[in-house]
Design a protein around this nucleic acid. Structure first.
Lengths: 249, 249
DNA sequence: TTATATTTTGCAGTTTTTTGCATTTTTAAC
DNA sequence: GTTAAAAATGCAAAAAACTGCAAAATATAA
Protein backbone atom coordinates (compact mmCIF):
# COMPACT_ATOMS: atom_id res chain seq x y z
CA UNK A 1 0.00 0.00 0.00
CA UNK A 2 1.26 3.40 -0.95
CA UNK A 3 1.93 6.03 1.66
CA UNK A 4 -0.28 8.48 -0.18
CA UNK A 5 -3.17 6.02 -0.20
CA UNK A 6 -2.77 5.34 3.47
CA UNK A 7 -2.83 8.99 4.42
CA UNK A 8 -5.88 9.50 2.26
CA UNK A 9 -7.60 6.68 4.09
CA UNK A 10 -6.70 8.21 7.44
CA UNK A 11 -8.12 11.54 6.36
CA UNK A 12 -11.39 10.09 5.16
CA UNK A 13 -11.86 8.18 8.40
CA UNK A 14 -11.21 11.37 10.36
CA UNK A 15 -13.67 13.29 8.22
CA UNK A 16 -16.32 10.67 8.62
CA UNK A 17 -15.97 9.96 12.33
CA UNK A 18 -14.27 13.13 13.48
CA UNK A 19 -11.60 10.98 15.04
CA UNK A 20 -9.24 8.07 14.58
CA UNK A 21 -7.35 5.75 16.89
CA UNK A 22 -3.78 4.91 15.94
CA UNK A 23 -4.05 1.32 17.10
CA UNK A 24 -7.28 0.75 15.17
CA UNK A 25 -6.14 2.06 11.86
CA UNK A 26 -2.74 0.39 12.15
CA UNK A 27 -4.46 -2.94 12.46
CA UNK A 28 -6.96 -2.20 9.69
CA UNK A 29 -4.28 -1.14 7.23
CA UNK A 30 -1.89 -3.78 8.47
CA UNK A 31 1.09 -1.53 9.02
CA UNK A 32 3.01 -0.78 12.18
CA UNK A 33 1.82 1.69 14.73
CA UNK A 34 4.90 3.78 14.12
CA UNK A 35 4.05 4.23 10.49
CA UNK A 36 0.62 5.53 11.29
CA UNK A 37 2.11 7.74 13.94
CA UNK A 38 4.39 9.26 11.33
CA UNK A 39 1.52 9.68 8.89
CA UNK A 40 -0.53 11.51 11.42
CA UNK A 41 2.40 13.68 12.34
CA UNK A 42 2.76 14.69 8.72
CA UNK A 43 -0.93 15.34 8.21
CA UNK A 44 -0.94 17.45 11.33
CA UNK A 45 1.98 19.49 10.00
CA UNK A 46 -0.02 20.00 6.81
CA UNK A 47 -2.98 21.13 8.90
CA UNK A 48 -5.25 18.39 7.61
CA UNK A 49 -6.12 17.12 11.09
CA UNK A 50 -5.17 17.54 14.71
CA UNK A 51 -2.87 15.00 16.27
CA UNK A 52 -3.78 14.07 19.83
CA UNK A 53 -2.56 11.52 22.32
CA UNK A 54 -3.68 8.15 21.00
CA UNK A 55 -4.87 9.24 17.60
CA UNK A 56 -6.17 12.28 15.76
CA UNK A 57 -9.33 14.38 15.54
CA UNK A 58 -10.76 16.50 12.78
CA UNK A 59 -9.97 20.18 12.86
CA UNK A 60 -13.57 21.24 13.39
CA UNK A 61 -13.77 19.03 16.42
CA UNK A 62 -11.05 20.51 18.59
CA UNK A 63 -11.73 21.95 22.02
CA UNK A 64 -10.35 25.31 20.92
CA UNK A 65 -13.04 25.58 18.31
CA UNK A 66 -15.75 25.35 20.94
CA UNK A 67 -14.78 28.53 22.66
CA UNK A 68 -14.44 30.58 19.51
CA UNK A 69 -17.47 28.74 18.21
CA UNK A 70 -16.19 29.00 14.67
CA UNK A 71 -17.42 32.55 14.48
CA UNK A 72 -17.05 33.56 10.91
CA UNK A 73 -14.47 36.31 10.46
CA UNK A 74 -13.90 36.52 14.20
CA UNK A 75 -10.82 38.71 13.93
CA UNK A 76 -12.50 41.34 11.81
CA UNK A 77 -15.43 41.47 14.18
CA UNK A 78 -13.13 41.94 17.14
CA UNK A 79 -11.36 44.77 15.32
CA UNK A 80 -14.72 46.44 14.62
CA UNK A 81 -15.86 46.05 18.21
CA UNK A 82 -12.65 47.58 19.46
CA UNK A 83 -13.20 50.64 17.31
CA UNK A 84 -16.78 50.91 18.51
CA UNK A 85 -15.69 50.85 22.13
CA UNK A 86 -13.86 54.14 21.61
CA UNK A 87 -17.22 55.88 21.11
CA UNK A 88 -18.40 54.98 24.59
CA UNK A 89 -18.30 57.60 27.31
CA UNK A 90 -18.87 57.26 30.99
CA UNK A 91 -22.58 57.43 31.70
CA UNK A 92 -23.66 56.74 28.10
CA UNK A 93 -27.03 55.16 27.48
CA UNK A 94 -26.74 52.79 24.55
CA UNK A 95 -28.60 50.10 22.67
CA UNK A 96 -26.80 46.98 21.51
CA UNK A 97 -28.27 44.95 18.67
CA UNK A 98 -27.97 41.18 18.24
CA UNK A 99 -25.52 39.39 15.96
CA UNK A 100 -21.98 38.19 16.40
CA UNK A 101 -20.35 41.55 15.89
CA UNK A 102 -22.52 43.32 18.46
CA UNK A 103 -21.96 40.40 20.75
CA UNK A 104 -18.27 40.97 20.45
CA UNK A 105 -18.82 44.62 21.31
CA UNK A 106 -20.69 43.62 24.45
CA UNK A 107 -17.93 41.22 25.37
CA UNK A 108 -15.22 43.86 25.04
CA UNK A 109 -16.87 46.65 27.01
CA UNK A 110 -14.19 47.69 29.50
CA UNK A 111 -15.08 47.80 33.16
CA UNK A 112 -13.82 51.34 33.56
CA UNK A 113 -16.93 52.82 31.91
CA UNK A 114 -20.31 53.06 33.60
CA UNK A 115 -23.01 52.32 31.07
CA UNK A 116 -26.71 51.77 30.71
CA UNK A 117 -27.31 49.21 27.99
CA UNK A 118 -30.58 48.31 26.37
CA UNK A 119 -30.67 45.16 24.31
CA UNK A 120 -33.17 42.77 22.79
CA UNK A 121 -30.56 40.05 22.30
CA UNK A 122 -30.25 37.13 24.69
CA UNK A 123 -26.56 36.49 23.99
CA UNK A 124 -25.73 40.17 24.43
CA UNK A 125 -27.69 40.26 27.68
CA UNK A 126 -25.77 37.21 28.91
CA UNK A 127 -22.50 38.88 28.08
CA UNK A 128 -23.43 42.13 29.77
CA UNK A 129 -24.65 40.42 32.91
CA UNK A 130 -21.06 39.56 33.74
CA UNK A 131 -20.12 43.24 33.88
CA UNK A 132 -20.74 45.00 37.17
CA UNK A 133 -20.33 48.45 35.62
CA UNK A 134 -23.17 47.97 33.15
CA UNK A 135 -26.85 48.39 33.93
CA UNK A 136 -28.69 46.08 31.55
CA UNK A 137 -32.25 46.61 30.46
CA UNK A 138 -33.88 43.92 28.43
CA UNK A 139 -36.35 44.69 25.67
CA UNK A 140 -39.03 42.02 25.77
CA UNK A 141 -41.01 40.49 22.97
CA UNK A 142 -41.39 37.28 21.06
CA UNK A 143 -38.05 35.57 20.71
CA UNK A 144 -36.74 34.65 17.31
CA UNK A 145 -35.23 31.18 17.54
CA UNK A 146 -32.79 31.89 14.79
CA UNK A 147 -31.41 35.25 15.80
CA UNK A 148 -32.12 35.01 19.54
CA UNK A 149 -33.56 38.50 19.74
CA UNK A 150 -36.98 39.88 20.67
CA UNK A 151 -39.03 40.74 17.64
CA UNK A 152 -42.65 41.52 16.83
CA UNK A 153 -45.13 44.20 17.84
CA UNK A 154 -44.31 43.88 21.51
CA UNK A 155 -40.59 44.46 21.02
CA UNK A 156 -41.30 47.40 18.73
CA UNK A 157 -43.66 48.92 21.25
CA UNK A 158 -41.09 48.55 24.00
CA UNK A 159 -38.50 50.22 21.83
CA UNK A 160 -40.85 53.14 21.16
CA UNK A 161 -40.74 54.01 24.82
CA UNK A 162 -37.00 54.50 25.17
CA UNK A 163 -34.39 56.97 23.95
CA UNK A 164 -30.69 56.16 23.81
CA UNK A 165 -27.56 58.19 23.02
CA UNK A 166 -26.07 55.62 20.70
CA UNK A 167 -27.36 52.44 19.17
CA UNK A 168 -24.89 49.92 17.83
CA UNK A 169 -26.53 47.84 15.14
CA UNK A 170 -25.61 45.15 12.67
CA UNK A 171 -27.21 44.43 9.32
CA UNK A 172 -27.53 41.61 6.85
CA UNK A 173 -26.51 43.68 3.85
CA UNK A 174 -25.39 47.23 3.26
CA UNK A 175 -25.05 49.27 0.11
CA UNK A 176 -24.40 52.98 -0.35
CA UNK A 177 -27.34 53.24 -2.74
CA UNK A 178 -29.87 50.74 -1.34
CA UNK A 179 -29.07 51.33 2.31
CA UNK A 180 -29.36 48.63 4.97
CA UNK A 181 -31.33 45.57 3.91
CA UNK A 182 -32.33 42.19 5.35
CA UNK A 183 -33.66 38.86 4.31
CA UNK A 184 -36.25 38.88 7.10
CA UNK A 185 -39.22 41.24 7.31
CA UNK A 186 -39.64 41.05 11.08
CA UNK A 187 -36.03 41.92 11.68
CA UNK A 188 -36.40 44.98 9.50
CA UNK A 189 -39.31 46.24 11.57
CA UNK A 190 -37.24 45.95 14.73
CA UNK A 191 -34.24 47.69 13.16
CA UNK A 192 -36.48 50.58 12.19
CA UNK A 193 -37.70 50.87 15.76
CA UNK A 194 -34.13 50.79 17.07
CA UNK A 195 -32.99 53.54 14.74
CA UNK A 196 -36.01 55.63 15.69
CA UNK A 197 -35.19 55.53 19.38
CA UNK A 198 -31.54 56.48 18.92
CA UNK A 199 -29.98 59.92 18.87
CA UNK A 200 -27.06 58.47 16.90
CA UNK A 201 -26.91 55.16 15.07
CA UNK A 202 -23.65 53.29 14.61
CA UNK A 203 -23.47 50.51 12.05
CA UNK A 204 -21.04 47.67 12.68
CA UNK A 205 -20.40 45.65 9.55
CA UNK A 206 -17.61 43.49 8.22
CA UNK A 207 -16.40 44.67 4.84
CA UNK A 208 -17.71 41.50 3.23
CA UNK A 209 -21.24 42.85 3.56
CA UNK A 210 -20.47 46.11 1.78
CA UNK A 211 -22.18 46.61 -1.56
CA UNK A 212 -24.66 43.82 -1.10
CA UNK A 213 -28.43 44.02 -0.77
CA UNK A 214 -31.53 41.94 -0.15
CA UNK A 215 -35.26 42.33 -0.31
CA UNK A 216 -36.36 44.32 2.74
CA UNK A 217 -34.97 47.69 3.67
CA UNK A 218 -34.25 48.83 7.22
CA UNK A 219 -33.15 52.37 6.41
CA UNK A 220 -31.33 54.67 4.02
CA UNK A 221 -27.61 54.88 4.35
CA UNK A 222 -28.07 58.48 5.53
CA UNK A 223 -29.87 57.25 8.63
CA UNK A 224 -26.54 55.91 9.81
CA UNK A 225 -24.32 58.40 11.60
CA UNK A 226 -21.20 56.27 11.90
CA UNK A 227 -20.17 53.18 10.02
CA UNK A 228 -17.46 50.91 11.37
CA UNK A 229 -15.74 48.19 9.36
CA UNK A 230 -12.47 46.41 9.91
CA UNK A 231 -10.92 48.43 7.08
CA UNK A 232 -8.96 51.62 7.45
CA UNK A 233 -11.29 54.64 6.89
CA UNK A 234 -9.36 55.63 3.74
CA UNK A 235 -9.64 52.19 2.13
CA UNK A 236 -10.85 52.41 -1.51
CA UNK A 237 -13.52 49.79 -0.81
CA UNK A 238 -15.32 52.48 1.19
CA UNK A 239 -15.27 55.06 -1.60
CA UNK A 240 -18.92 54.79 -2.53
CA UNK A 241 -19.91 55.70 1.02
CA UNK A 242 -17.93 58.91 1.03
CA UNK A 243 -20.57 60.88 -0.89
CA UNK A 244 -22.87 60.45 2.08
CA UNK A 245 -23.06 62.19 5.39
CA UNK A 246 -21.49 59.28 7.27
CA UNK A 247 -18.56 59.18 9.56
CA UNK A 248 -16.41 56.20 8.63
CA UNK A 249 -14.36 54.72 11.39
CA UNK B 1 -11.96 7.10 24.06
CA UNK B 2 -9.53 9.88 23.32
CA UNK B 3 -8.80 12.47 25.95
CA UNK B 4 -9.68 15.22 23.50
CA UNK B 5 -13.04 13.64 22.85
CA UNK B 6 -13.75 13.42 26.52
CA UNK B 7 -12.90 17.05 27.09
CA UNK B 8 -14.97 17.96 24.09
CA UNK B 9 -17.93 16.10 25.57
CA UNK B 10 -17.48 17.86 28.88
CA UNK B 11 -17.45 21.23 27.16
CA UNK B 12 -20.56 20.55 25.16
CA UNK B 13 -22.46 19.41 28.24
CA UNK B 14 -21.37 22.56 30.03
CA UNK B 15 -22.43 24.67 27.08
CA UNK B 16 -25.82 23.06 26.89
CA UNK B 17 -26.73 22.93 30.57
CA UNK B 18 -24.37 25.57 31.92
CA UNK B 19 -23.13 23.08 34.46
CA UNK B 20 -21.71 19.62 34.90
CA UNK B 21 -21.30 17.27 37.83
CA UNK B 22 -18.03 15.37 38.05
CA UNK B 23 -19.69 12.22 39.38
CA UNK B 24 -22.33 12.22 36.63
CA UNK B 25 -20.01 12.64 33.71
CA UNK B 26 -17.47 10.19 35.13
CA UNK B 27 -20.16 7.53 35.14
CA UNK B 28 -21.50 8.49 31.72
CA UNK B 29 -18.07 8.37 30.10
CA UNK B 30 -17.00 5.40 32.17
CA UNK B 31 -13.73 6.78 33.47
CA UNK B 32 -12.60 7.51 37.01
CA UNK B 33 -13.61 10.61 38.87
CA UNK B 34 -9.95 11.62 39.05
CA UNK B 35 -9.66 11.67 35.28
CA UNK B 36 -12.63 13.99 34.94
CA UNK B 37 -11.27 16.12 37.72
CA UNK B 38 -8.01 16.49 35.80
CA UNK B 39 -9.86 17.25 32.57
CA UNK B 40 -11.88 19.97 34.21
CA UNK B 41 -8.74 21.38 35.78
CA UNK B 42 -7.12 21.58 32.36
CA UNK B 43 -10.15 23.10 30.69
CA UNK B 44 -10.35 25.64 33.47
CA UNK B 45 -6.68 26.52 32.98
CA UNK B 46 -7.45 27.02 29.30
CA UNK B 47 -10.37 29.24 30.25
CA UNK B 48 -12.93 27.05 28.57
CA UNK B 49 -15.08 26.68 31.67
CA UNK B 50 -15.07 27.47 35.37
CA UNK B 51 -14.22 24.75 37.82
CA UNK B 52 -16.33 24.75 40.96
CA UNK B 53 -16.66 22.44 43.92
CA UNK B 54 -18.33 19.30 42.62
CA UNK B 55 -18.15 20.06 38.94
CA UNK B 56 -17.89 22.94 36.53
CA UNK B 57 -20.03 25.76 35.17
CA UNK B 58 -19.98 27.66 31.92
CA UNK B 59 -18.10 30.92 31.81
CA UNK B 60 -21.31 32.83 31.16
CA UNK B 61 -22.47 31.96 34.62
CA UNK B 62 -19.29 32.97 36.35
CA UNK B 63 -21.30 35.58 38.26
CA UNK B 64 -20.61 33.35 41.28
CA UNK B 65 -24.23 33.68 42.26
CA UNK B 66 -27.20 31.44 42.61
CA UNK B 67 -25.97 29.23 39.80
CA UNK B 68 -23.01 27.32 41.12
CA UNK B 69 -24.09 27.13 44.71
CA UNK B 70 -26.81 24.64 44.18
CA UNK B 71 -25.50 22.30 41.57
CA UNK B 72 -25.77 19.69 44.28
CA UNK B 73 -29.49 19.35 44.76
CA UNK B 74 -29.69 18.77 41.05
CA UNK B 75 -31.39 15.39 41.32
CA UNK B 76 -34.16 16.70 43.48
CA UNK B 77 -34.70 19.58 41.12
CA UNK B 78 -34.88 17.23 38.19
CA UNK B 79 -37.46 15.14 40.04
CA UNK B 80 -39.55 18.25 40.71
CA UNK B 81 -39.29 19.41 37.12
CA UNK B 82 -40.40 16.01 35.89
CA UNK B 83 -43.51 16.17 38.02
CA UNK B 84 -44.24 19.69 36.81
CA UNK B 85 -44.03 18.58 33.20
CA UNK B 86 -47.05 16.35 33.72
CA UNK B 87 -49.22 19.44 34.19
CA UNK B 88 -48.46 20.69 30.70
CA UNK B 89 -51.01 20.24 27.98
CA UNK B 90 -50.73 20.81 24.30
CA UNK B 91 -51.41 24.46 23.59
CA UNK B 92 -50.86 25.67 27.17
CA UNK B 93 -49.75 29.21 27.77
CA UNK B 94 -47.38 29.26 30.72
CA UNK B 95 -44.98 31.48 32.60
CA UNK B 96 -41.65 30.11 33.76
CA UNK B 97 -39.85 31.85 36.61
CA UNK B 98 -36.07 32.06 37.07
CA UNK B 99 -34.00 29.88 39.38
CA UNK B 100 -32.36 26.53 38.98
CA UNK B 101 -35.49 24.46 39.45
CA UNK B 102 -37.49 26.37 36.87
CA UNK B 103 -34.51 26.19 34.59
CA UNK B 104 -34.59 22.46 34.90
CA UNK B 105 -38.28 22.52 34.02
CA UNK B 106 -37.50 24.48 30.88
CA UNK B 107 -34.78 22.07 29.96
CA UNK B 108 -37.01 19.04 30.31
CA UNK B 109 -39.98 20.28 28.32
CA UNK B 110 -40.63 17.47 25.84
CA UNK B 111 -40.86 18.28 22.18
CA UNK B 112 -44.20 16.57 21.81
CA UNK B 113 -46.09 19.48 23.41
CA UNK B 114 -46.75 22.76 21.69
CA UNK B 115 -46.39 25.58 24.22
CA UNK B 116 -46.33 29.32 24.55
CA UNK B 117 -43.91 30.26 27.29
CA UNK B 118 -43.45 33.64 28.89
CA UNK B 119 -40.34 34.17 30.97
CA UNK B 120 -38.31 36.97 32.48
CA UNK B 121 -35.28 34.75 33.00
CA UNK B 122 -32.32 34.82 30.64
CA UNK B 123 -31.21 31.24 31.36
CA UNK B 124 -34.75 29.92 30.91
CA UNK B 125 -35.07 31.83 27.65
CA UNK B 126 -31.79 30.35 26.44
CA UNK B 127 -33.00 26.89 27.27
CA UNK B 128 -36.34 27.36 25.56
CA UNK B 129 -34.78 28.77 22.43
CA UNK B 130 -33.47 25.33 21.63
CA UNK B 131 -37.00 23.91 21.46
CA UNK B 132 -38.81 24.27 18.18
CA UNK B 133 -42.18 23.41 19.73
CA UNK B 134 -42.10 26.30 22.16
CA UNK B 135 -42.98 29.90 21.36
CA UNK B 136 -40.94 32.01 23.73
CA UNK B 137 -41.95 35.49 24.80
CA UNK B 138 -39.51 37.47 26.84
CA UNK B 139 -40.61 39.83 29.56
CA UNK B 140 -38.30 42.83 29.46
CA UNK B 141 -37.09 45.03 32.26
CA UNK B 142 -33.97 45.84 34.20
CA UNK B 143 -31.83 42.77 34.59
CA UNK B 144 -30.75 41.61 38.01
CA UNK B 145 -27.11 40.56 37.82
CA UNK B 146 -27.51 38.03 40.54
CA UNK B 147 -30.67 36.24 39.55
CA UNK B 148 -30.49 36.95 35.81
CA UNK B 149 -34.14 37.92 35.54
CA UNK B 150 -35.96 41.12 34.59
CA UNK B 151 -37.11 43.07 37.61
CA UNK B 152 -38.38 46.56 38.38
CA UNK B 153 -41.32 48.67 37.31
CA UNK B 154 -40.87 47.87 33.67
CA UNK B 155 -40.98 44.13 34.18
CA UNK B 156 -44.00 44.44 36.44
CA UNK B 157 -45.81 46.57 33.90
CA UNK B 158 -45.08 44.06 31.17
CA UNK B 159 -46.42 41.28 33.36
CA UNK B 160 -49.62 43.24 34.00
CA UNK B 161 -50.43 42.99 30.31
CA UNK B 162 -50.43 39.22 29.99
CA UNK B 163 -52.53 36.31 31.23
CA UNK B 164 -51.25 32.75 31.39
CA UNK B 165 -52.84 29.38 32.20
CA UNK B 166 -50.10 28.26 34.54
CA UNK B 167 -47.14 29.97 36.09
CA UNK B 168 -44.33 27.85 37.45
CA UNK B 169 -42.50 29.76 40.13
CA UNK B 170 -39.72 29.22 42.62
CA UNK B 171 -39.22 30.94 45.95
CA UNK B 172 -36.46 31.67 48.41
CA UNK B 173 -38.40 30.38 51.41
CA UNK B 174 -41.76 28.79 51.99
CA UNK B 175 -43.75 28.20 55.16
CA UNK B 176 -47.32 27.06 55.61
CA UNK B 177 -48.00 29.95 57.97
CA UNK B 178 -45.84 32.78 56.56
CA UNK B 179 -46.33 31.88 52.94
CA UNK B 180 -43.68 32.53 50.27
CA UNK B 181 -40.93 34.90 51.34
CA UNK B 182 -37.71 36.32 49.90
CA UNK B 183 -34.57 38.10 50.95
CA UNK B 184 -34.94 40.66 48.16
CA UNK B 185 -37.73 43.20 47.92
CA UNK B 186 -37.52 43.69 44.15
CA UNK B 187 -37.90 39.98 43.57
CA UNK B 188 -41.02 39.96 45.73
CA UNK B 189 -42.65 42.68 43.64
CA UNK B 190 -42.05 40.65 40.49
CA UNK B 191 -43.38 37.45 42.07
CA UNK B 192 -46.57 39.29 43.01
CA UNK B 193 -46.98 40.43 39.44
CA UNK B 194 -46.41 36.92 38.14
CA UNK B 195 -49.02 35.43 40.48
CA UNK B 196 -51.47 38.15 39.48
CA UNK B 197 -51.24 37.31 35.79
CA UNK B 198 -51.70 33.57 36.29
CA UNK B 199 -54.91 31.57 36.34
CA UNK B 200 -53.09 28.88 38.32
CA UNK B 201 -49.81 29.18 40.17
CA UNK B 202 -47.52 26.20 40.65
CA UNK B 203 -44.75 26.40 43.22
CA UNK B 204 -41.61 24.38 42.61
CA UNK B 205 -39.53 24.02 45.74
CA UNK B 206 -36.99 21.54 47.05
CA UNK B 207 -38.00 20.23 50.48
CA UNK B 208 -35.02 21.94 52.05
CA UNK B 209 -36.84 25.26 51.73
CA UNK B 210 -39.96 24.06 53.50
CA UNK B 211 -40.71 25.70 56.86
CA UNK B 212 -38.27 28.55 56.38
CA UNK B 213 -39.01 32.24 56.03
CA UNK B 214 -37.39 35.61 55.42
CA UNK B 215 -38.30 39.26 55.56
CA UNK B 216 -40.38 40.05 52.47
CA UNK B 217 -43.52 38.23 51.53
CA UNK B 218 -44.52 37.34 47.99
CA UNK B 219 -47.88 35.79 48.81
CA UNK B 220 -49.96 33.70 51.20
CA UNK B 221 -49.67 29.97 50.89
CA UNK B 222 -53.28 29.96 49.68
CA UNK B 223 -52.29 31.89 46.59
CA UNK B 224 -50.51 28.75 45.43
CA UNK B 225 -52.67 26.19 43.65
CA UNK B 226 -50.16 23.39 43.37
CA UNK B 227 -46.97 22.78 45.26
CA UNK B 228 -44.35 20.39 43.93
CA UNK B 229 -41.44 19.07 45.94
CA UNK B 230 -39.22 16.06 45.40
CA UNK B 231 -41.02 14.28 48.25
CA UNK B 232 -43.92 11.91 47.89
CA UNK B 233 -47.22 13.80 48.41
CA UNK B 234 -47.94 11.80 51.57
CA UNK B 235 -44.57 12.56 53.18
CA UNK B 236 -44.95 13.75 56.81
CA UNK B 237 -42.72 16.73 56.11
CA UNK B 238 -45.61 18.13 54.09
CA UNK B 239 -48.17 17.77 56.88
CA UNK B 240 -48.40 21.44 57.80
CA UNK B 241 -49.43 22.25 54.26
CA UNK B 242 -52.34 19.86 54.25
CA UNK B 243 -54.65 22.24 56.13
CA UNK B 244 -54.55 24.54 53.16
CA UNK B 245 -56.28 24.50 49.85
CA UNK B 246 -53.19 23.29 47.99
CA UNK B 247 -52.68 20.39 45.72
CA UNK B 248 -49.46 18.66 46.65
CA UNK B 249 -47.68 16.80 43.92
C1' DT C 1 20.27 -4.10 -15.99
C1' DT C 2 23.05 -2.70 -12.21
C1' DA C 3 24.81 0.32 -8.81
C1' DT C 4 23.81 3.98 -5.82
C1' DA C 5 21.15 7.31 -3.32
C1' DT C 6 16.90 8.29 -1.01
C1' DT C 7 12.87 7.32 1.32
C1' DT C 8 10.08 4.45 3.98
C1' DT C 9 9.26 1.15 7.38
C1' DG C 10 9.60 -1.75 11.56
C1' DC C 11 11.90 -2.64 15.76
C1' DA C 12 14.09 -2.07 20.37
C1' DG C 13 14.95 0.83 24.12
C1' DT C 14 13.83 5.02 26.54
C1' DT C 15 10.95 8.77 27.90
C1' DT C 16 6.59 10.87 28.50
C1' DT C 17 1.72 10.87 29.26
C1' DT C 18 -2.29 9.09 31.04
C1' DT C 19 -4.91 6.87 34.32
C1' DG C 20 -6.67 4.78 38.61
C1' DC C 21 -5.96 4.01 43.39
C1' DA C 22 -4.78 5.06 48.25
C1' DT C 23 -3.95 8.66 51.47
C1' DT C 24 -4.20 13.17 53.23
C1' DT C 25 -6.12 17.72 53.13
C1' DT C 26 -9.70 20.88 52.21
C1' DT C 27 -14.35 22.31 51.62
C1' DA C 28 -18.95 23.15 52.76
C1' DA C 29 -23.24 21.53 54.72
C1' DC C 30 -25.48 21.03 58.97
C1' DG D 1 -18.11 22.54 66.41
C1' DT D 2 -19.06 17.63 63.46
C1' DT D 3 -19.21 15.06 59.42
C1' DA D 4 -19.45 13.70 54.71
C1' DA D 5 -18.14 14.84 50.19
C1' DA D 6 -14.82 16.52 47.19
C1' DA D 7 -10.01 18.03 46.08
C1' DA D 8 -5.19 17.49 46.17
C1' DT D 9 -1.14 14.62 46.40
C1' DG D 10 1.93 10.91 45.56
C1' DC D 11 2.59 6.71 43.37
C1' DA D 12 2.72 2.86 40.18
C1' DA D 13 0.99 0.37 36.11
C1' DA D 14 -0.19 0.85 31.41
C1' DA D 15 -0.33 3.07 27.13
C1' DA D 16 1.56 5.95 23.89
C1' DA D 17 5.29 8.86 21.97
C1' DC D 18 9.89 9.59 20.78
C1' DT D 19 14.66 8.21 19.37
C1' DG D 20 18.11 6.03 16.71
C1' DC D 21 19.07 2.52 13.69
C1' DA D 22 19.08 -0.99 10.26
C1' DA D 23 16.49 -3.46 6.80
C1' DA D 24 13.42 -2.99 3.00
C1' DA D 25 11.38 -0.57 -0.65
C1' DT D 26 11.65 2.86 -4.05
C1' DA D 27 13.70 6.09 -7.07
C1' DT D 28 17.57 7.68 -9.88
C1' DA D 29 21.37 7.45 -12.94
C1' DA D 30 24.90 5.24 -15.50
Amino acid sequence: MLKEERQQTILSVVELHNRILITDIAETLDVSIDTIRRDIKELDAENKLKKVHGGAISLGFTTDSVKNKNIYKQEQKTAIAEKAITLLKDGSVIFVDGGTTCNELARLIPNAIELTCFTHSIPVAMELLTKSNVTVILIGGQLSKESQISIGANAIHNLSEIKVDYSFIGTGYVDSHYGLTEFDWDIVQVKKAIIKCSKKTVLLSISEKLNSQHRYKSCDINAINTMITELAPEDPQLNSFRNHDIRIL
